[in-house]
């Protein structure tokens, strides 16, 4: 469905006064999502996860330069085709009701999302009803304003908005942040249902626990680079191959709550060799060479020590 190959994004930014610097928030990011699959994109804040979503939706600001390829159903995405697909074949599940129009009733907005995806009035009304039924939202919820729905209901409304238009690829940006565990689980189970209907879901999150429970595969992003792309069960099975993926998992409070000191490279640092070099406990001389993302076992890893 979606295939991102060696995506890099750079911005020119003003430092002091007129001096411009080039920053690389995303460097050589690759992943793919198949039909009926949830791929979780995990990483720290500032690792370029959200920029990936913006790049796929064609929402990068004007001063961004990209290289690499984004293929949707086998065809490369251009800025024109992204604008055409956005909201139709590719939909964003927003993070909070702050993304909805505060002055328009909820039912109206789901209907409008459906209309904007190119449906006629009757079909749009039907798919609005279907979306409301699917997420067990009462008929009366339609006449509420966004500020009147809270917690779990808000998540369902947002999911309904994104699914009223029959998109094939759904991008969920941090759908569990700030939610209590019950609501978070519900929100994730909706994503699972969508994937089971054959849709492709990109789940952007820093919540490893959630990602591992619901996703089929997980892409671990570090400083804008894919360091590992692996089946989700490898986390719990202890079969992770990149030291950073292992560090993330072991740092969970319910695991070891241990941490690796140090910081990811800054966006304007030049990186040759391995991107994780400074912090890696197992580094050797070989790590100074460029590290390609290579298939190991059932996944892909960017580490020269990883073995099948």
């Amino acid at each position: 469905m979606l295939s991102v190959k060696n995506l890099s994004i750079e911005f020119s930014r003003y430092g002091s006064a007129r001096r411009r610097t080039i920053i690389h928030p995303v460097r050589d990011l690759s992943l793919d999502i198949g039909d009926g699959e949830i791929v979780a994109v995990v990483g720290s804040s500032g690792s370029g996860k959200s920029l990936l979503a913006h790049a796929v939706l064609g929402l990068l600001p004007g001063n961004a330069r990209t290289s690499g390829e984004i293929l949707f159903k086998g065809t490369p995405l251009t800025s024109a085709s992204m604008a055409a697909l956005r909201g139709r074949a590719i939909a964003l599940i927003p993070q909070s009701v702050a993304y909805l129009n505060p002055l328009s009733r909820v039912g109206r907005q789901v209907y409008r999302a459906s209309r904007l995806s190119g449906k006629c009035r009757a079909t749009a009304a039907r798919s609005t009803d279907r979306a409301f039924a699917r997420y067990r939202l009462d008929e009366s919820v339609k006449s509420l304003f966004p500020f009147q729905v809270s917690g779990g209901m808000a998540r369902r409304v947002l999911t309904a908005t994104a699914t009223a238009g029959d998109a094939d690829l759904l991008i969920a940006d941090e759908p569990t942040t700030g939610l209590d565990p019950v609501v978070a689980r519900q929100s994730l189970s909706h994503l699972r249902e969508l994937a089971d209907l054959g849709k492709a879901v990109m789940l952007i999150t820093h919540d490893i626990d959630a990602a591992v429970t619901v996703a089929d595969r997980v892409a671990v992003i570090y400083a804008g680079t894919t360091v590992e792309l692996t089946p989700a069960r490898n986390f719990a099975d202890g079969a992770l191959r990149h030291p950073y993926s292992r560090a993330l998992w072991n740092a969970l409070p319910q695991q070891g709550f241990g941490f690796v000191p140090g910081n990811q490279p800054m966006e304007d640092d030049a990186v040759n060799g391995c991107i994780y070099l400074d912090r890696c406990p197992d580094r050797t001389g070989e790590c100074r060479c460029a590290q390609p993302l290579r298939p190991v076992g059932k996944g892909h890893v960017r580490c020269c020590h990883a073995q099948g």
């Binding site: 995990v42 990483g43 720290s44 804040s45 690792s47 942040t177 700030g178 820093h206 490893i208 560090a247 993330l248 998992w249 740092a251 969970l252 409070p253 709550f257 241990g258 941490f259 690796v260 000191p261």
Partner: peptide, 17 residues
């Protein structure tokens, strides 16, 4: 107040330590 809710597990553990 939700000091580490936006952070990845590694940074969270580091900050709390």
């Amino acid at each position: 107040d939700e000091m580490t809710a936006m952070l990845d597990p590694n940074t969270q553990a580091l900050v709390w330590d």
